[in-house]
Design a protein around this nucleic acid. Sequence first.
DNA 1: CAGCAGGTGCAAG
DNA 2: CTTGCACCTGCT
Length: 292
Amino acid sequence: MRYDITEENNQVIIKNIRDFEPKHIFECGQCFRWDSEEDGSYTGVAYGKILNVKKEGEDIIFSNTNLKDFNEIWVNYFDLETDYGVIKNELSDVPILKEAINFGHGIRILNQDEWEILISFIMSARNSIPMIKKSLNMLSERYGEYIGEYNGRKYYSFPEANVLDKLSLEEVQDCKASFRAKYIISAATIVSSGEIDIYRFKNLSTEDARKELMRFTGVGPKVSDCIMLFSMGKHDAFPIDVWVKRVMEYFYLKKDTSLKIIQEYGQDKFGRYAGYAQQYLFYYARELGIGK
DNA sequence: CAGCAGGTGCAAG
DNA sequence: CTTGCACCTGCT
C-alpha cells in the first residue's frame, strides 16, 4: 500500500489512503475497546497505548502517537499493508456482495491481541455489544494497568492472564460477566499456566487453530472463528453470528439452514477472503436490519 | 409485568 | 452427528 505520511506534534497524518473509514472499522463488531468522541473520532487502547483516530476530509489523523509507534504498532494493527482494493475487486464478483462492500467500504480487519480477543469473544456469547464493552471496561479499570489520560478520561490496559486467573468467581461476575465468569477464569488459568500457548496459533492452519481454540470452555465454532479472524490473521475464517446467518439465508440460502451448511457455503463461495466477506455482510445486515 | 435477544455446554435421541 | 434446552442480564 502506498500512502503519504507526516508527523507533527504528537500526531501522525496519512494522506491518500484508500479504504479507511473509522466508523466502519470500529463499529463492524470486531473490537470493543474503542469509543466514539463528539467530533466523530474514536479513542481506544491497544498494546498499552492510547490512540485517537479521526478522518478529516481525505486525511486520517492519528493523535497521541509518533512515527515510531505508528510504524511499530499501528501499521500492523490497522492492516495498512493490505490492499483492500484487490480483496474488494475479487469479492465484488459474488452477487449482492458489491452492495455490502459499498456500504462498508472503509472496513479494515484489525490485528488485535490474541489474549484480549479470546476473553472479549468469550464475553460476547449470548451478549449485546454495549454489555460486552461495559464488562471489558470494568475488567480493565479494576484489574488492568493504568496507562494515562486522554481527553479527560482515564485508560487502562486489558488485564493479563496471570492477573485474571487469581480472581474469584464473584469478582469476575461483578464485572457483569454473568455465567461467562467461570469460562474467563478457566481460560486465564489455562493461558497463564502455559498449558495452551495461544500466541502459537497464528502459525497453525485455520483448521488446526480452530480445534485448539475450542479446547477452551466458552469457545465454540463462532467464537473461535472471531478470535482467528480478529487476532490471528486467519482471513479465511467465517464467523456466523445471528446477523450473518440471517443475511446468508436472506440472500443465498433458505430459512432455517443449519450453521454447518452456511459455514461450508461461505467458505466455498468466498474462499480465502471469507473473513472479509463476513465483515462486509455483518455490517450491512446489522446496520440495515436485513433478514430480521 | 412478561417476553425477547444472543452462542455454547451438555444431555438425550 | 444432530437436536433441544439451560444459562443471565438489560431492554422493550
